[in-house]
Design a protein around this nucleic acid. Structure first.
Lengths: 147, 147
DNA sequence: TTGTCAATCTGCAAAGAGTGCGAACTAACA
DNA sequence: TGTTAGTTCGCACTCTTTGCAGATTGACAA
């Protein structure tokens, strides 16, 4: 995702207005690596700008996504996550706490894939899921406590 | 997924009852390759057993999934799809009509993956998305019709 | 600085997908 | 045939996201 300053230019160039709400969200998403949900971002935004609406957060996020500045990721856990990292990458999600991290995969061009006949493929996404360090150690703690 | 007869045994062995509703659903899912949503399956089931409830469809599907007889797949398009194919495989979804097909991928063990440090990975799923033959030709038809 | 107008914001209603709950029902086994 | 635990069904409700409309405001021109 571009910097807040660049996004300001881009938005204006596209006939979109740059409001305080949008500027706040540009700032909150820029360099954000936690893959927040709309609700999470709304909470952060509300702390800095009381009164901002969840509707506006969704609206701006959708705008950014349709401009290719943001990627929508679905980790199969309810809410959509938003990712300002537009590099070619994939994700890993902790099935316990829901944490999402970026994953870089090389060599996918050498995969042998069977079953795509007739499809014109536009995208391939890999989603790893498992348990993060924090949750793994918590499980261990609880196990020790129990026994 | 096991055959309806085998599932009957398995359910009883696990202390679960085998009701007409469940038998119907076993039959509808066995060998089913369309990756139906709960609603779609409910529609088929209703045609054969008027009065069956959507709640029961969800219940049975969930039971089968927790017994490992069914895989839940999320193609990021609203409803969860159910897949009786429990082989190690992946999926491709048509972003236009939502059709889902099984995809077999070989060589994934040779991928170079960066970013999984600390995670204990339990699963990796690859989701291809694009346009199926049918939708691709329809697009062509419409383009021709337009001029 | 002021005016104009389309774009935006906000709040609320509503849609889609599931899930929790409880009363009525029934499969399974003695 | 009786008992009982597991099921079914329908309804209410949650959660995430979108549609709508009136009030507001950014952007550009004069």
């Amino acid at each position: 995702m571009k910097s807040p300053a660049e996004l300001t230019e881009t938005f204006r160039a596209n006939g979109l207005k740059v409001t305080p709400q949008r500027q706040l969200l540009f700032g909150l998403m820029h360099g954000n690596t936690v893959h927040p949900t709309a609700e999470a971002l709304f909470a952060e935004a509300s702390a800095r700008m009381p009164g901002i609406s969840l509707r506006t957060v969704y609206q701006t996020l959708t705008d950014l996504a349709s401009m290719g500045e943001l990627r929508l990721i679905d980790v199969g856990a309810g809410a959509t996550r938003f990712d300002p990292n537009t590099d070619d990458h994939h994700h890993v999600v902790c099935s316990s706490c829901g944490e999402v991290r970026d994953v870089y995969v090389a060599g996918s061009d050498r995969l042998k894939v069977d079953g795509l006949d007739g499809f014109r493929i536009e995208e391939a996404s890999i989603l790893f899921s498992g348990t993060c360090v924090t949750c793994a150690s918590e499980t261990v703690s609880r196990a020790s406590a129990r026994g």
